[in-house]
């Protein structure tokens, strides 16, 4: 089947969710929409089960941090419709201090570790996740390392003198 035109998806989403889901743009042909966390599971379910779209494949879940925004933490979903070869990107932004979002593990088993990774890096709490623990970093870590304020290098290093590096 041929790829679904982005306008059709935008129209269908508009009919179903009205203003709750807004279109951000389509960079390089990939439709990008923004949703609130209240609608996200409904939206994902709709895209997954709608017979003309069938976005049945969860490509990826990841996060992003914009410190200067009011809603700092973003969660980004990439879905893929394997039957029509169409992709869609969905963004949800969350305010720091209230980083709760419902889990997508109810729709895809594979969301489990992707959400754990997002939690590990950005501290996003996926409500209803069966096993929300750190996955890559050590368990007793308290910070969320992919947030922009976290330094790349280990701040506790003593062997690395600045003057060796011209700083």
């Amino acid at each position: 089947m041929a790829a679904i035109p982005n306008e059709d998806i935008v129209k269908a989403i508009g009919d179903k969710f009205a203003d709750a889901v807004t279109v951000i743009g389509e960079p390089y042909g990939l439709l990008t929409v923004e949703s609130g966390r209240e609608q996200i599971i409904d939206l994902l379910t709709f895209l997954k089960t709608d017979p003309s779209f069938k976005f049945t494949f969860l490509t990826d879940i990841t996060g992003i941090h914009y410190p200067e925004q009011e809603k700092q933490i973003g969660v980004i979903y990439h879905l893929h419709s394997l039957t029509t070869n169409t992709r869609i990107r969905i963004k949800v932004f969350l305010a720091d201090g209230d980083v709760h979002i419902p889990t997508a593990t109810v729709l895809w088993e594979g969301a489990n570790w992707m959400e754990r990774e997002t939690y590990d890096f950005f501290g996003v709490i996926f409500d209803g996740h069966p096993d929300l623990r750190r996955i890559l970093n050590v368990d007793d870590m308290t910070a969320f390392p992919m947030r922009k304020e976290f330094p790349l290098e280990d701040p506790n290093r003593v062997d690395k003198k600045d003057f060796y590096f011209g700083r």
Binding site: P145, L152, D154
Partner: peptide
Amino acid sequence: FDTYSVLQ
């Protein structure tokens, strides 16, 4: 890998 997670 001069990062927070790697032993130097």
